[in-house]
């Protein structure tokens, strides 16, 4: 694929602890083209760490090791903190789980969006404002003029997350990393937010890394799915063929979800095989 936006080889995320080094991510490889890649796993599987590692947002004393981490022309491994600041936002943006914690509570939506824009580009306030309005419109917010004047606590969770998406997409990044973007939202809002995100990503030809614990959700909104377990990728498959997944872990996850239309007396319980931990990581390149 000539159009590779991100290429990662043998990525490790490690945290030194009192009892030795803890490996959160253990040597995974993946690449991202202009596509939607889903990363699924349970808590502690290392999926969020993977997303953060790409933007070098791992907090000290944790550290990242890899054979290769290439984003477009830039080698992320050698990039300085200063370079990374330029990359974050302009080339790759990240959407976190809860908009309540990602938006600054004492600034209005307008101030935050204008700031997001002016840190990456030299634009006048007027132009920044009109671009902000345009983006809010793109994420299906009615009365964007009114919303611009609001403070984060005055908007609902769903709207907050749409504002976040708008804000992240203003500088026109090529890669969007969405870490559980809808798990703090109600089901009926979830779909709307996801559809908006999906549409924007498609229209702009961006690459999306969608991190979630929800297999079925990921299957709906992605092209490829990588299933993570204990810091490794245990299976990669096309999203449409997720129901035919082979790995017992993936199957277990699929079967553990209570399904309204296919009731069962007992839910299937995942039997974790210690061998899964040790099996080599599957490449998602």
């Amino acid at each position: 694929m000539s159009d590779t936006l991100l290429d990662v080889e043998n990525l490790w995320v490690r945290f030194p602890t009192r009892n030795g080094i803890f490996d959160a991510v253990r040597g995974i490889s993946f690449s991202l083209g202009r596509e939607r890649l889903g990363i699924v796993g349970e808590s502690g599987s290392g999926k969020s760490m993977t997303g953060r590692a790409v933007l070098k947002l791992i907090r000290k004393p944790g550290f990242v090791e890899a054979d290769k981490m290439q984003m477009g022309e830039t080698d992320l491994l050698t990039a300085s903190e200063r370079d990374m600041r330029a990359i974050r936002g302009r080339h790759a943006a990240m959407i976190m789980q809860d908009p309540k914690f990602s938006l600054n509570p004492v600034m209005t939506v307008e101030q935050q969006m204008v700031e997001a824009l002016t840190t990456h580009e030299r634009v006048s306030r007027r132009e920044a404002r009109s671009r902000a309005l345009e983006m809010l419109d793109a994420v299906a917010i009615r009365e964007p003029e009114r919303v611009l004047r609001l403070y984060p606590h005055e908007v609902s969770g769903g709207m907050g997350q749409r504002i976040m998406i708008a804000m992240m997409l203003i500088p026109d990044p090529e890669i969007l990393i969405a870490d559980e973007p809808t798990s703090a939202l109600d089901v009926s809002v979830q779909l709307q937010v996801l559809e908006i995100m999906d549409k924007l990503v498609k229209d702009r030809g961006m690459g999306l890394i969608f991190i979630s614990h929800d297999l079925n959700l990921v299957a709906n909104f992605c092209d490829r799915v990588a299933v993570m377990y204990a810091g490794r990728i245990v299976e990669v498959c096309e999203a449409g063929k997720l129901q035919e997944a082979q790995h017992p872990y993936t199957r277990g996850l699929l079967n553990a979800v209570p399904d309204l239309e296919h009731p069962r007396d007992r839910l299937e319980v995942l039997e974790r095989d210690p061998a899964w931990r040790e099996a080599p990581s599957v490449s998602a390149r």
Binding site: H213, D214, V257, V269
Partner: peptide, 13 residues
């Protein structure tokens, strides 16, 4: 997590 949810729901049943 869903797999843990399944265990707890089974336990409750």
């Amino acid at each position: 997590d869903v797999s843990v949810q399944a265990e707890i729901l089974n336990l409750l049943s």
